[in-house]
Design a protein around this nucleic acid. Structure first.
Length: 951
RNA sequence: GGGGAUGUGGUGAAAUUGGUAGACACGCUAGUCUUAGGAACUAGUGCUUCGGCGUGUGGGUUCGAGUCCCACCAUCCCCACCA
């Protein structure tokens, strides 16, 4: 018998596929469409890694399955071929990125063929090809015309090593996600996509798509919506001397025109705002420097904050800041209260004085300041320049960070809300735990503010008290198991004049209105900065008039080619600035004095729409024809790594939403269903990395085990979304399986059949086949490839026996039947399965099995298919349907439980009635042991499955 | 600090969604065989003091819990001074 020789088989089959263009995609309009998409690779010098192998295999299985199910399936591939590595390589070696990219993509294509991936390689996309980036530029033009991309000078994240700006999403822990260099903030003019315009839709529309929940949540988190208010604080010059401070006539002091606008989610605590804090980057600081008495100190602090690396910021958790001497802000709520009524004003002054709490004793100086609406202003780096307005109102009583800062700088703390909390000990909790309960109550009280907590009642099982919503006691609220219930009354305002007694939620709006503020929604998401001062990217199709006005180069000038006459070396100014050709081209077309934009686009722009190009990759008139867009999009299934949650997946969604708004597409979510593959780890569960030298690559694995085994192992090792540990011992399992498949097809009996000899087959073979069809089909639909494969294994294990010894060993056959896969249970076969006992049936069974196997092991199944005398491709067959009449069981094993414990199992007809089942159960010797002399109080019967006797 | 995920044999993992825990594999143990191979085949393989006990731990709901509820522990990932 010939041995299973994957290398030989796979080469032969691949050659045949290629010669016949088996994966060439032609629209078949009579069939329903299915679009299964891979995340296209960046063609690096290392070739495909195992992560690609896994996710591409998964999508390839779906592709083959859907094709067999009669769908017209689009399964395209391409290359995200612009990007830094090729450029850096060019800097090092002088080889043009074009060359590197070509070489690398060729290697990728070779590997994809080697793995037997059924991509349509005749319609590949390269984002660095001008026939593609022409449309990237065209889209940019559309965005430009519609005001969805704008040029502004803003602080951007600058990577000093890559010498380019990068997007917020590309910063990891303050470092460049690519080269791990500390990111600096730099003011650079650049282009920004207005992704923030779509923040709300980007959150809400996640409801419409079938994506992993974790991915959705992460995106929502990243967008970071928070509702609150913008409130303005007027600024005044403050007196400088202690003597002045005693004359607290605020009206006499000069009010400045500038105001400080803050964003807060807790406008209800405005009366408790006892100081303001500006981020070091806040523009007002520079603007008011003449008014700031301690300017040199402030300036020093700002400089230091700027130069602080992320590491330093993380290390020193302690908050720092500097007070802006010479300036004060006016708490608008208190000010308005004071001006409203003299009596009120007196009252509030009294209240204020009475309710000031602080880390240490009040100094006369602060006492004077804090008893007014005037509050000091600080600059501190715990406030971020990039979030909200870059300024906060600090409410130390109700915010942990503000509290910490206030304590350090000895600032007033004013409580303006309170909670009522009640703990009730669970009645089931026995009284002997009284000590525990006491300890717990003490613990709770210890963690509240002793002088701000009022105990309302305390008994042995109830503790009720009032406190402020200061964070302390919130931690570990239910730390001890003995408490089963606690209630928190609504947060209610105090020390807030006319708002006292109002609940916190209502007060947010009321107080905001009261001071003329505005309820707003704030997002963490920033606009997408896409300008890159690098060479190997898509040129931004913009030119500037002599007056400096930006103009889109126009559709007729597309593609706006990437110039070739440049030096790649990154210097911080864009390489394109050195291109003579680009400059001449610009002047030639637009006139003297016109200059080209010299930045290139972030490569994520290229990948934000590539899936729209696939249905119509050769179209020279449109990025994709409307008919093809309508037929193929949105994408039905997208498989790829979870690491793209914040960047690619967010950007692509934004692009489609913007295009929808512009009327370019008729859908607003690109990917209906998304699944991630897990990571491929080494045998010890470690990440693979070059530096650790534990990288496994597809070439070696295919050489060693063949493509089919490599593919199958990745799928068999566990669920798709979980990590796979690459253990070579593990590959053996699927290799053995493939060998068994090979062997069964070399059996004499099967060969005889093929040659037309009639032959009695065991009637259970069709039964198992139909079970397998059902199981494998359901599993593939749910992307549960690991269990689908196990079902194929079960089929082969049983079938090998039958095929190798068809006439004999009835007992063994019976045993096999009992071992049939889990879904079937240990059922006895239906005798009535109408299997004509002929060679035709055996062949049919085995043919069907090959079709089931083919998505997983396309080479072997095709090879054996031909061995059965077929001339065509297994790809073009029909996926088998199971017939439920073959699956129905006549008898079943009934589990008998006594008090919920399994005590016996008996074989009974599948449709046994409860009454009969009970009789049979009680007749069992094993059961009698447990029921003897006892009354059966209750019987639970699950038809066909189990009976539970309660005694 | 916030968010998320995961805990099941020696190992990777199954479990029709509340109904026989450990399918299918790897590994291991014994045996058979010989074109000595990456063999193949057969039997066995959760623990056990043979009463039982077993899905990270402790409670709860239920006739019945890996699955549902509460709390805790551990590991991993992501975000992180986001007002």
């Amino acid at each position: 018998m010939k041995k299973y020789n994957p290398r030989k088989i796979e080469k032969e089959v691949q050659k045949k596929w290629e010669e016949n263009k088996a994966y060439f995609h032609r629209d078949q309009k009579d069939k329903p469409k299915y679009y299964v998409l891979d995340m296209f690779p960046y063609p690096s010098g290392d070739g495909l890694h195992m992560g690609h192998t896994e996710s591409y295999t998964a999508s390839d299985i779906i592709y083959r399955y859907k094709r067999l199910r009669g769908f017209d399936v689009l399964h395209p591939q391409g290359f995200d071929s612009f990007g830094l590595p090729a450029e850096n390589y060019a800097v090092k070696t002088g080889i043009h990125p074009k060359e590197t990219t070509k070489k690398n993509t060729e290697n990728y294509i070779r590997q994809m063929k080697m793995l037997g991936l059924g991509h349509d390689l005749d319609h590949l996309i390269y984002t660095s090809d001008s026939s593609y980036y022409k449309w990237t530029q065209w889209l940019f033009g559309k965005f430009f015309e519609n005001g969805l991309v704008e040029r502004k000078t803003d602080k951007i994240n600058w990577c000093p090593s890559c010498n380019t700006g990068i997007a917020n999403e590309q910063v990891e822990n303050g470092k460049c996600e690519r080269c791990k260099t500390e990111i600096e903030q730099k003011e650079v003019p650049g282009w920004f996509f207005k992704i923030t315009d779509f923040a709300e839709d980007l959150i809400n529309d996640l409801d419409k798509v079938d994506w992993p929940e974790a991915t959705k949540k992460n995106q929502i988190n990243w967008i970071g919506k928070s509702e609150g208010a913008k409130i303005s604080f007027r600024i005044k010059k403050s007196s400088q001397t202690d003597a002045d401070l005693t004359q607290t006539n605020t009206e006499e002091r000069e009010t400045l025109n500038d105001e400080i606008s803050v964003f807060t989610t807790r406008p209800d605590t405005l009366f408790g705002a006892t100081y303001l804090v500006l981020a070091p980057e806040h523009p007002l600081i520079e603007k008011l420097k003449l008014e700031i008495k301690n300017w040199s100190e402030v300036k020093k602090y700002i400089e230091r904050a700027k130069n602080k690396t992320e590491m330093e910021r993380l290390e020193s958790k302690e908050k720092t800041g500097v007070k802006l001497e010479g300036l004060v802000a006016i708490n608008p709520a208190i000010a308005k209260m004071l001006s409203q009524s003299q009596t009120d004003a007196e009252q509030i002054q009294k209240d204020v004085k009475k309710n000031i709490l602080r880390g240490s004793a009040l100094s006369p100086r602060e006492s004077a300041v804090s008893s007014e609406a005037e509050i000091p202003i600080f600059v501190a780096d715990y406030v971020l320049g990039g979030y909200g307005t870059g300024a906060i109102m600090a409410v130390p009583a109700h915010d942990e960070r503000d509290f910490e800062f206030a304590k350090k700088y000895d600032l007033p703390i004013r409580y303006v809300t309170k909670y009522r909390i009640k703990y009730v000990v669970d009645s089931k909790f026995k009284i002997d735990a009284q000590e525990k309960i006491n300890n717990f109550f003490d613990w709770v009280l210890k963690h509240t503010h002793p002088n701000k907590t009022k105990i309302i009642s305390r008994t042995s099982t109830v503790l009720e008290f009032e406190s402020h919503d200061y964070f302390g006691y919130k931690k570990n609220l239910s730390a001890k198991r003995i408490i089963n219930f606690h209630s928190i009354s609504k947060n209610v305002l105090i020390n807030s004049g006319q708002f006292d007694g109002m609940n916190s939620e209502e007060a947010k709006k009321a107080i905001t209105e009261f001071v003329g503020g505005e309820m707003t929604t704030n997002y963490r998401l920033r606009d997408w900065s896409i300008s890159r001062q690098r060479y190997w990217g898509c040129p931004i199709p913009i030119v500037y008039s002599p007056e400096g006005e930006a103009k889109f180069v126009g559709e007729e000038n597309l593609p706006w080619l990437l110039p070739e006459d440049v030096d790649f070396k990154p210097t911080g100014t864009a390489p394109l600035a050195k291109s003579k050709e680009l400059k001449e081209r610009t002047e030639k077309i637009f006139g003297k004095g016109w200059t080209p934009e010299v930045d290139t686009m972030d490569t994520f722009v290229d990948s934000s729409w590539y899936f729209l190009r696939y249905p119509d990759p050769e179209n020279e008139k449109e990025f994709c024809s409307p008919e093809k867009l309508k037929r193929w999009l949105p994408v039905d299934l997208y498989i790829g790594g979870a690491e793209h949650t914040y960047m690619h997946l967010l950007y692509a969604r934004f692009f489609v939403k913007a295009m929808y708004k512009m009327g370019l597409v008729s859908f607003n979510e690109p990917f209906l269903k998304l699944r991630h593959q897990g990571m491929v780890l080494d045998k010890n569960g470690m990440k693979m990395s070059k530096s650790k030298g534990n990288v496994v690559n597809p070439d070696d694995m295919v050489k060693q085990f063949g493509a089919d085994a490599t593919r199958m192992y990745m799928m068999f090792a566990g669920p798709l979304e979980e990590d796979v540990m690459w253990k070579e011992e593990g590959v053996k399992g699927v290799y053995n399986f493939l060998q068994k498949v090979w062997k069964i097809f070399q059996e004499k009996n099967l060969i005889d059949c093929r040659e037309g000899k009639s032959f009695e087959i065991d009637k259970k073979l069709p039964f198992i086949l139909h079970k397998t069809i059902k199981g494998v089909t359901e599993d593939i639909e749910e992307l549960k490839f690991n269990t689908a494969i196990s079902k194929l294994m079960i089929f082969i294990n049983t079938a090998s026996r039958i095929v190798s010894q068809p006439q004999t060993d009835v007992e063994q056959t019976q045993k096999d039947a009992e071992r049939i896969q889990s879904g079937v249970g240990k059922n006895i076969l239906r005798g009535s399965a109408s299997s004509p006992r002929s060679s035709a049936t055996l062949l049919k069974v085995m043919e069907n099995f090959l079709i089931l196997l083919s998505p997983f092991a396309p080479h072997l199944s095709q090879y054996l298919w031909e061995q059965l005398g077929k001339k065509d491709f297994i790809l073009d067959q029909k996926w088998p349907q199971y017939d439920s009449k073959f699956i129905q069981e006549e008898t079943t094993e009934l589990v008998i439980q006594v008090n919920g414990k399994v005590r016996d199992k008996i074989k009974v007809p599948a449709d046994i009635s409860e009454k009969e089942a009970k009789e049979k159960a009680l007749a069992s010797e094993k059961i009698k042991k447990y029921t003897e002399g006892k009354e059966i109080k209750k019987t639970i019967f699950v038809p066909g499955r189990l009976i539970n006797l309660v005694v």
